[in-house]
């Protein structure tokens, strides 16, 4: 069984996000970029399935401009077997377009499982996995906190309001990962060195037959309003007065 793991290059989780001066988006120049943390969890899960003998190959795919291969290389250093890089001019390809590109890659690679992060920490869309499943006509299980691969099926546990839900899906299927699924490994130095020799195949959107033109228009990007200072009140009665004034009581 082959597993395809899409990984996204995003602003590093430690970087304080800043809006560009002209409000056209988020500042990306000279900013540290890393793999989306939920995608790291997806890579880890795929590797564990391979190590458990449930999968034979793990292929990492990413879509983006120059340096996106660094993110694929991170997946290879963790242990993925090879990479596919859909090279684009711009970053920030929309979820539906990403899903279409992934559908084309699924068609050529023929994986039995696609494991994605449930969302990317940059745009928080939480759409790509669901869209891909719909385009492929495959079953999907989102927000997986436990994955057990059976014979032609996969059992996925999801954390839902009030408890756990377990779904059984027929393969091939699309999964998206929740935070609690696993803790991604540290890439060891020998594996980091080996990863340099692993192949990354470059593809273009044109050869996959997908139009990259955006369908969404971003009207404005603004910083959240800053916190305003608090006040001290002298008595409980005064506090209640303020709360009433604020319309919360």
């Amino acid at each position: 069984m082959k597993i395809l793991v899409p990984v996204k290059r995003v602003v590093d989780y430690n970087v304080k996000i800043r809006v560009k001066a002209d409000g056209s988006g988020v500042e990306l120049t000279n900013i540290k970029m890393s793999m989306n943390p939920f995608d790291e969890i997806a890579v880890e899960e795929a590797l564990r399935l391979k190590e458990a003998g449930k999968a034979t190959e793990v292929v990492a795919v990413s879509i983006g401009p120059v340096k996106t291969d660094e993110t694929i290389r991170t997946a290879l250093a963790m242990g993925a077997d090879r990479g596919i890089w859909v090279k684009t001019e711009e970053a920030g390809i929309e979820p539906l377009t990403v899903a279409k590109l992934l559908k084309a890659i699924v068609a050529s690679e023929g994986p039995s499982l696609v494991i994605l992060g449930k969302q990317a920490i940059d745009d928080d869309c939480n759409q790509t996995g669901q869209m891909l499943a719909a385009l492929l006509g495959w079953p999907q299980a989102t927000f997986a906190s436990k994955v057990v691969v059976g014979d032609g099926t996969v059992d996925v546990t999801r954390e839902i309001d009030g408890g756990l839900q377990t779904l059984r899906l027929a393969l091939p299927a699309v999964l998206t990962t929740d935070l609690r699924l696993n803790e991604p490994r540290y890439a060891s130095l020998p594996n980091i060195m080996k990863a340099k020799k692993k192949p990354i195949e470059e593809k273009s959107a044109a050869e996959l037959g997908v139009d990259l033109a955006p369908r969404l228009e971003i009207l404005a990007t603004t910083e959240p309003a800053g916190r305003t200072g608090g006040i001290k009140v002298a008595s409980a009665a005064e506090l209640v007065g303020h709360l009433k004034q604020a319309g919360v009581l």
Binding site: D12, N14, V15, M35, P184, A187, L189, I192, M193
Partner: peptide, 22 residues
């Protein structure tokens, strides 16, 4: 790191993938 591994100064190691591992 390649030199350090090659010379045997370092027996094992890892590089942080990103801010979280850092």
């Amino acid at each position: 790191l390649e030199e350090a591994m090659g010379e045997g100064w370092v027996s094992d190691g890892t590089l942080a993938n990103g801010g979280q591992q850092r």
